[in-house]
Design a protein around this nucleic acid. Structure first.
Length: 282
DNA sequence: AGCTCGACCTGCACGC
DNA sequence: TGCGTGCAGGTCGAGC
């Protein structure tokens, strides 16, 4: 997409999670995508003329790239749902947005649960944008420091699990990586966030948590992400960080810490599964 | 103000 | 076979 012209944009329904912005297709038609960037879990395309196209994949969204030579990228090896025979090019029941690029490349947004989001707004509105303005620091950025997290957690009376999933504090962590980071840090997901902070400055626990958050994210990126059911990278390659899960989706398996071996437990916190070792995480 | 939880939506795995 | 239940990578916004 980056550097290419959007020859045509087709919306095959009127909304995803939210209604598509007014005249979105017309506003994009004929415009060049000047750059593709990312903020938290949002993909941001800078459109010629000063608008930003914001895209979020939700739980099940994906882009598939159909090259003019017939090559297809972005379809994982196995599907979470049954693809209709012979309709992988944008007319499937969950193919919602089609970006026809000049030069013949077709990029299809597919999302069977429709938790995804697309929005289009003027560049100047970005900093006040509802979905962007409240986001916290990037987990891999310089702004995530032990000092920052200590301050952010000091008034946090929610469990660590919820605090790390809170995109207003750290923007970009999801359920898998929070479980893994807490395990590596030896911290219970049920522990209240403020109990690992101190007024004087970052505690050893905070320092360690910042380290494990960064480690988990960088290792997961290195491994190409986590393929549970149907996730694939942009080129269609599967991720393989799922083979490195120490707790996520490991209910009942023996804790991998030497000398522990107790079964990994699954609990539900704020409606999401949490996996942890009751012995190693305090 | 801060926190928890329901809602959004589809498909699949499981048990009866 | 078919039905009911629970579960899934996210996050907004209602209600406490």
């Amino acid at each position: 997409m980056a550097g290419c012209v959007l020859e045509d944009v087709t919306l095959r329904r009127k909304n995803l999670r939210f209604p598509f912005p007014k005249n979105m297709a017309q506003r994009l038609r004929g415009k060049r995508v000047e750059a593709l960037t990312r903020r938290a879990k949002y993909i941001l395309a800078r459109i010629e003329g000063g608008e930003i196209l914001l895209m979020h994949l939700g739980m099940s969204g994906r882009f598939t790239i159909h090259q003019p030579n017939g090559e297809v990228q972005g379809r994982p090896g196995e599907f979470h749902y049954q693809m209709p025979e012979g309709s992988p090019t944008g007319d499937g029941p969950h193919d919602h947005v089609i970006f026809q690029m000049a030069g013949g490349t077709r990029i299809v947004y597919t999302d069977h649960r429709r938790f995804g989001i697309m929005d289009l707004f003027a560049e100047e509105e970005a900093e006040n944008h509802k979905l962007l303005s409240t986001l916290g620091v990037e987990p891999m950025g310089n702004a995530l420091t032990a000092d920052y997290l200590n301050e952010a957690f000091r008034r946090k009376h929610s469990p660590l699990k919820a605090a790390l999933l809170d995109q207003k504090i750290i923007a970009g962590l999801g359920n898998i990586y929070v479980c893994e980071a807490l395990f590596r840090a030896g911290l219970s997901p049920k522990r209240l966030a403020h109990t690992i902070t101190s007024e004087a400055g970052p505690t050893a626990r905070i320092e360690r948590l910042v380290r494990t958050v960064r480690d988990v994210i960088s290792e997961a990126i290195e491994a190409g992400g986590s393929t549970l059911r149907d996730y694939a990278q942009a080129d269609g390659e599967l991720g393989y960080f799922q083979h490195s899960f120490q707790v996520y989706d490991q209910e009942g398996a023996a804790c991998c810490v030497p000398g522990c071996g107790r079964p990994i437990k699954r609990i539900v916190q704020s409606g999401r599964s949490t996996f942890y070792c009751t012995s190693c995480q305090k």
